[in-house]
């Protein structure tokens, strides 16, 4: 698969504080690449180094096979990005902002072409409204529209759902999936909201205190983890005794809600269910929790 981005051994310090340390990343064509980490973990600094806004102290970034330091303009022509807050010229309309940014990119787009970009993010009806009248969600969508102006191959969105209400978050999530699935764009999406990453990303990196903790396929990473089982039966005492005998290596704990909790491997779950059913114990509920959040908390 074609590698769109390769970052090698990135390092950046601000004074005595090492913001990013030995970060390696690989993004493939067609990925929605989740960039996960708590606030202050070095996500934005890394993204800024990818985009040449910040010069790394060490390391290199290759985009589309070219060094971003030596071929800055060439690589930026193929990238659309929205970094942190969607800040625009508030005294200009949405259309004027996009027209201005297109011209900075060396593009002369017609009004129709610009309105088409606004249509993708459902802002075409507000094309001539001043940005200062926009809600945070609308600005966020306008931010995504500006990434599309030059039809880039790679879109980088830094914390795109920050400060949005649930509907706004859902809109952005759908938009990201739409850009990936309909237009074939590769996306790097950074966030500290893990649930969102779980829903959209196919590959991810987890970064903490400026260091890469883990990188890989989201599903593979989650599958490799132990699962948390929450079991509700019609006879909790019998179920505890039975399971403790049959699976002595697993610790079953009974909580205040009369639920049976256990950490186990994925392949053990059907075996547990089978034992309970064979013993005539009714299984009311069998919940398996293996979220990105659990994974994230585990690895960071």
């Amino acid at each position: 698969m074609e590698q769109i981005l390769i970052a090698k051994n990135l390092r950046k310090s601000f004074g005595d504080v090492e913001a990013v340390s030995n970060v390696d990343l690989t993004v493939f064509k067609g990925d929605i690449y989740g960039f996960l980490g708590p606030n202050g973990s070095g996500k934005s600094t890394t993204i800024r180094m990818i985009l040449n806004l910040i010069t790394p102290d060490e390391g290199e970034v290759f985009l589309f096979g070219q060094s971003n330091a030596n071929h800055r303009k060439e690589v930026l022509r193929r990238i659309g990005s929205l970094i942190e807050r969607p800040d625009f010229y508030n005294y200009l309309s949405a259309y004027q902002n996009l027209e201005l940014l297109a011209r900075y990119s060396g593009l002369k787009l017609s009004r129709k072409e610009i309105v088409e970009k606004l249509e993708i993010v459902d802002l075409h009806e507000r094309a001539d409204s001043k940005v200062k009248t926009f809600s945070q969600g609308m600005k966020q969508r306008l931010g995504i529209a500006q990434t599309l102006l030059h039809d880039p191959d790679l879109i980088i969105l830094d914390e795109p759902v920050n400060g949005l209400d649930p509907q706004g978050i859902k809109d952005i999530r759908n938009l990201i999936l739409h850009l990936n699935q309909t237009f074939g764009k590769t996306l790097i999406v950074s966030s500290h909201i893990l649930r969102e990453m779980e829903l959209i990303a196919n590959r991810m990196v987890v970064i903490s205190k400026g260091k890469v903790i883990v990188e890989g396929e989201v599903l593979t990473l989650l599958e490799s983890e132990r699962q948390k089982l929450i079991l509700i039966t019609d006879n909790i005492t019998s179920a505890t005794t039975l399971l403790s005998q049959k699976f002595p290596h697993i610790i079953f704990e009974r909580n205040k809600l009369d639920e049976l909790i256990a950490d186990l491997s994925a392949h053990e779950i059907p075996l547990i269910n089978k034992e309970l059913v064979n013993a005539g114990i009714g299984v009311k509920q069998l919940l398996v929790r293996n979220s990105l959040e659990d994974y994230f908390l585990h690895v960071t």
């Binding site: 303009k73 022509r77 800040d87 940014l101 060396g106």
Partner: peptide
Amino acid sequence: RLLLTRPVS
């Protein structure tokens, strides 16, 4: 951030 992430010197 908007300007300098575009292909502009």
